[in-house]
């Protein structure tokens, strides 16, 4: 966990937005001596930050390390509660498991669990989610929404909208959504989302959203079996991207749409989701455990279920499926 002093120090640099913060100001903010300020700055340097010190002006952060600890994520983060509490691990079995444990201990809404490497990342149907060290974003967010339980699946579509916009803002790429919440870049999957609910009967305790983003992998770093269907942001962009920037932009978009959703419901989210969807008006195959539905994807309903018009003109509602776009 990050110390309160470190949090305040980074907040001061965030506010300066790349500009100088005087030693005097830092010592006032942290309530410590000028010598202690110097010590805190040295600690940041040891962690890979490049800081410039200029007499009479103060300190300025020139470069942040390509890491995703709370330091890098919170430096410049413009949110009120999403990602204000960050729990970072170098390596972890699954951020989702940690998030469940923290949630049961009463972790606050918006808590973010993030890891540099996952050894047991997983997707739908217990499929393995490949999450190697230092190249991706493996994270889980804890939410405590005051909404009826049956509406919680809408949050997975909301997450997809925030990811599309966050990635777009950070990279200039234009991702699309494949129902319900796979994020594709140039038709290949770059992000997967899996959400779990903690509830008792009808009462929602927490919603835990697990997100895996392929950021800086090269194509030969993917297992062969998924090379034709998976991609990373670096592959599509042609250059490596700071992971912390993507996390920040996502958290900001997420907070915006989550707050909107709690106030105004699913309608605005539905419109955005449909505008980013890749499958609308296309013929799709929806493979479910009880068979495959083939037809034209019309959109989503108020719950977030996919509406498919079959060749007989019948409209099927799909809640769970693997989608192939033809």
């Amino acid at each position: 966990m990050q110390s309160e002093i470190r949090r305040k120090l980074l907040a001061a640099f965030s506010e300066a937005d790349g500009g100088y913060v005087s030693g005097q100001k830092i010592s006032e903010l942290l309530g410590c001596s000028r010598t202690a300020v110097w010590k805190h700055i040295e600690e940041l340097r040891k962690e890979g930050f490049v800081l410039e010190a200029v007499r009479r002006k103060g300190y300025r952060i020139v470069k942040t390390p390509e890491k995703i600890t709370a330091n890098e994520i919170q430096l410049g983060l413009q949110t009120d509660f999403i990602g204000q509490n960050i729990v970072y691990y170098d390596t972890v079995d699954s951020t989702q498991k940690i998030a469940h444990e923290l949630s049961q201990k009463g972790a606050e809404e918006g808590t973010l669990v993030v890891a540099d490497e996952q050894t047991g990342g997983r997707g739908r149907m217990a499929r393995v989610w490949y999450s190697p060290k230092g190249t991706g974003i493996w994270m889980s967010i804890i939410l405590r929404p005051n909404i009826p339980l049956q509406k919680t699946p809408q949050l997975t579509l909301l997450t997809a909208v925030a990811l599309v916009e966050g990635i777009e803002e950070a990279t200039g790429l234009s991702p699309t959504i494949k129902w319900p919440n796979d994020i594709l870049i140039n038709g290949k999957k770059a992000v997967g989302i899996l959400t779990e609910l903690e509830a008792e009967a009808d009462q929602v305790h927490s919603v835990i959203i697990g997100i895996g983003i392929n950021v800086n992998q090269q194509i030969d770093e993917f297992p062969e079996a998924i090379r034709n269907t998976a991609t990373s942001i670096a592959i599509e962009k042609g250059e490596k991207i700071h992971r912390a920037l993507i996390i920040q932009k996502f958290l900001e978009r997420f907070e915006k749409w989550y707050t909107t959703y709690l106030e105004h419901g699913f309608k605005p989210i539905k419109l955005l989701w449909e505008s980013y969807s890749i499958s609308l008006n296309k013929t799709i195959h929806a493979r479910t455990l009880s068979g495959t539905v083939v037809g034209k994807a019309l959109g989503i309903n108020e719950e977030g279920a996919l509406l498919i018009e079959t060749s007989e003109g019948k409209i099927e509602k799909v809640y769970s499926a693997d989608i192939d776009i033809k």
Binding site: E196, E303, G304, S320
Partner: peptide, 26 residues
């Protein structure tokens, strides 16, 4: 599960399962 949100359902009572009324995947 709906829209890739997974909800583990708990029994909420202590006892014995005497009937399962739905099919896997339904």
């Amino acid at each position: 599960e709906a829209m890739k949100l997974f909800n583990e359902i708990e029994a909420e009572v202590k006892g014995e399962i005497v009937d399962i009324l739905v099919e896997n995947g339904q």
